[in-house]
Nucleic acid binder design. Structure first.
Lengths: 255, 255
DNA sequence: TCGTTTTTTGACTACTTGTCAAAAACACAC
DNA sequence: GTGTGTTTTTGACAAGTAGTCAAAAAACGA
């Protein structure tokens, strides 16, 4: 076949669509019963295909995990990129990245579980080179975007790096704080008992304290952060906010 | 038997000793191949007991995980308690807790993996009420110790809490930063490529930046932190330091 | 030495991932 | 429609898990 009516044959589209359904179901399974709840047998049964067909899409369980995490990570990179392009001072741009991170975690709450899963077992080793590279590229992109903003801050004289503190130190601090915070929030059911009722705001606040500690100007007290975040959301992430509102409406309806 | 020669019969001691061997082996398995590498069959085979005997000690895999984590957590509580008793200003005492945390992670590096594992699958649900309670008590103890020092700081006027910032907020910040930092350090092999060559020092530095951001006096710049940490280690954790040195010597010899 | 209690065993069930030869579905020429 | 070659789908199969339980073995007490 030299040329095709569409970019894909009917069959190919069908297969693609099935792949999506597999991933969707896998995501649900992981959310419900954790990594252990993900079973190739049950996927095949639920989708009314034989196991062999599922294995034609994903050569092992780990491939599904990696596909899921890559799906999310690509969206995260997109959000980060748009955030870093925010017009303003370096600290405002970093606030935009923070806002995009919050949005990401709210839009794709399942992702926390999946990301946890790939960090535990030796999943990366079993997955294909291709999928591993994809994840690495996404992570590198995120890291680079963040470090870019930090470097800009240094260049603009808003942030002083000296001695032990380097661009990487700041990036690692933010990464630890957000990754740790969201992980705890997702896996510690009794966080409210410990006095944290709004984890997202708590994490946002902690990030700002950390940046203040690094002396990144303007300091939090010199910014109207609520207004800034509101503006960022409005200017950069209007579609995502609408999507989130829709999602919450659906959740409220369901229970 | 109304009274016994020893507190335990010979048989009971034998059983206790075996339980220790099971846990030791399980820990090794988890370190080597992650949660997936832990197999009841293989434990039985390696220890030359039948599976049934292993199941007499631990009714399921999750019980082993929980036993391991409890083992570590009890040691952590002990370290935290001793750290909080350090004589000095509130921030110095918090530095002592930080030092104890560093020590803990170095003495029991396997624990990071185990703690990760119990956070992922629904292990807590499957484990016995007893073991679950034990873990909860340990976590509560750690949290309480940290919050105690923070409260003391507030009472002494070294730290101002107002508005959104409460004692819990500071505690959550430190928890996120250390948990996240050590998790990333343990599971991201390429951290050095990202410019972080000494994760422990990086995490320590970040914690101090965060506390500076909260305005916890004396600020890092007004303290001789290296000297303080050295003093804390010498005064409070001499035995653990020796243990660690021994451990490192062993590691150096092996590889 | 013998009966009783406790401990240990390994075959068993029910599940998992992953493979692969054979069967079914499909595409296409005539 | 019919025949033919290719692709896709299937489900029985191997090899490995967790956990159970009746029966065998060991320990104990008299």
């Amino acid at each position: 076949m030299v040329f095709m009516k569409s970019t894909l044959t009917r069959k190919q589209r069908e297969v693609k669509e099935r792949e999506g359904r597999i991933l969707e179901l896998a995501r649900q399974m992981i959310v419900q019963d954790g990594y252990h709840g993900l079973s190739m047998d049950r996927i095949a049964e639920a989708l009314e295909y034989s196991k062999g067909t599922i294995y034609q899409h994903f050569s092992c369980k780990e491939e599904i995990l990696m596909a899921l995490v890559n799906q999310s990570m690509q969206r995260r990179v997109d959000l980060f990129r748009r955030a870093a392009a925010f017009q303003g001072r370096s600290r405002e741009r970093m606030t935009a990245i923070g806002a995009s991170s919050e949005l990401f975690c709210q839009l794709y709450p399942d992702n926390v579980h999946v990301e946890h899963a790939i960090r535990i077992t030796s999943i990366k080793e079993k997955a294909s080179e291709q999928r591993r590279m994809c994840l690495e590229r996404c992570e590198a992109s995120c890291s680079e975007i963040v470090r870019g903003v930090i470097s800009d801050a240094v260049a603009a004289g808003d942030l002083a790096v000296e001695g032990e503190v380097g661009v990487e130190q700041v990036a690692f601090g933010l990464w630890s704080l957000t990754f740790g915070g969201y992980s705890i929030a997702a896996t510690s059911p009794s966080l409210a008992n410990l006095g944290i009722h709004d984890p997202i705001m708590a994490i946002r606040n902690n990030c700002n304290r950390l940046l203040d500690g690094f002396g990144w100007k303007p300091l939090a007290k010199d910014l109207d952060l609520p207004a800034l975040v509101e503006r960022i959301q409005r200017e950069l992430f209007a579609p995502e906010l609408a999507q989130l509102a829709e999602l919450n409406r659906g959740r409220a309806r369901r229970g």
